[in-house]
Design a protein around this nucleic acid. Sequence first.
DNA 1: TTTT
DNA 2: TTTT
Lengths: 142, 142, 142, 142
Amino acid sequence: MLNKVCLVGRLTKDPELRYLANGTPVANFTLAVNRTFKNRNGEREADFINIVVWRKQAENCANYIGKGSLVSIVGRIQTRSYDGADGQRRYVTEVVAEEVQFLDSKNSRNSQQNQTSNDFDTNDVPLDDLYPIDGDEEDLPF
Amino acid sequence: MLNKVCLVGRLTKDPELRYLANGTPVANFTLAVNRTFKNRNGEREADFINIVVWRKQAENCANYIGKGSLVSIVGRIQTRSYDGADGQRRYVTEVVAEEVQFLDSKNSRNSQQNQTSNDFDTNDVPLDDLYPIDGDEEDLPF
Amino acid sequence: MLNKVCLVGRLTKDPELRYLANGTPVANFTLAVNRTFKNRNGEREADFINIVVWRKQAENCANYIGKGSLVSIVGRIQTRSYDGADGQRRYVTEVVAEEVQFLDSKNSRNSQQNQTSNDFDTNDVPLDDLYPIDGDEEDLPF
Amino acid sequence: MLNKVCLVGRLTKDPELRYLANGTPVANFTLAVNRTFKNRNGEREADFINIVVWRKQAENCANYIGKGSLVSIVGRIQTRSYDGADGQRRYVTEVVAEEVQFLDSKNSRNSQQNQTSNDFDTNDVPLDDLYPIDGDEEDLPF
DNA sequence: TTTT
DNA sequence: TTTT
């Protein structure tokens, strides 16, 4: 119905890239998002949020960002359940990334590429959306 | 870099559907979003936000929602400039809708269809995203 | 750094209202957010997201919404850890609500009040924010 | 009802700080948000979004960020109308910032302070929210 | 299991 | 443990 998350934070470790049986790439990592306010001990805590990235974006994350990288993520909250070794049903909440932007080049393994890293999902988008205007500005119906 | 908007509000009028020279559908409407807090006169004002919707979603909006419909929208803020009749350059800010959900069936012209209206962009999405898991749950690499 | 969540969904049960030792009210409930796309079996699954609400908003939720109510929530993702009965450390992810809006009056226990329910946090906000303009429009410095 | 915006971008110029007749500080600046996709000429365009910041945050922006600074902003879209010199009614859309985070220290005029700049609105928040837990963890009712 |  |  509406389920949208916006995050800015740093990776706590390098992304783990794996492949489904059908070849689809998946990457997982944890994002540390520092809180705005300090706690009663004057420390600034962080939230540690698990991120899942699919397909080409997963491979780009594996190639261009690593532990400590600053990224912004737009995605949705997803819940999954599984049965633990003790037979108990457990619940996992993670963020499925729909957009990942690399905000610095620290710890990136390829700083040249990093500069243009946000081109990576161009192919996922219908051409119409990239070049919405067919002819001149006057063509626009509004 | 990051530009994401989440809105819930009601259409102030029926959507206007038009077509680009190349056939691409575009719909425009204004969303009234009531503010959370009242002003000094005890009135609850609203913000009136211009929405642009492209392609199949544009046609779905034209078919299934109208003046007064409650919708949720996820999109991005877009700025455009144009030259006014008086030669002055003017700036327009609008929200380009990426997702539109119909939250009620009031004023919809087709309440049966409205029930499943949020299927409309299924075709815009790679199959992998809809059915990310190839085989059994055990295939999942995490 | 940035941690913001926007949700629209329905309560799976009535909110549970409790009080901290110091008297601070806390409410908990689960929000069912239907996914946009159907799965491979043609079913529309939902995500079940745990919500925490604090103070006056907690009491308003307990009073005015219940199982099945449609609400919009703005908040942040929070992670907590605790040690399970088996000595294992476990992690919980929930959404701390900053804003709650009641979008229908179904299942509300007091439909009259529900109509104006979004006044509830007025007291939490500095007056300046509610009535930002001191005198006439001309006072505005921009 | 719901009106929330998340942005990451760079200031196109230093913030302009002014004061209302009643002493309330207001800052204005424009945020350049680079688009994810290139246009048909292979250029990455940007959206230029007008930002309004109120009270203490306005003064912090004036003190700690400037042209070129990278910031994240959470806020809401606001529309205003005014009558132009030619007697025409015009409409302005801007983002009222609720949270501003400084993501780098470039072009900041006080890099020491910048480090802890996000403490600035601590005073605006009820203590309960900062230190929600009264006693030990066991006090938590959930 | 946590980042700067 | 799940809502319409």
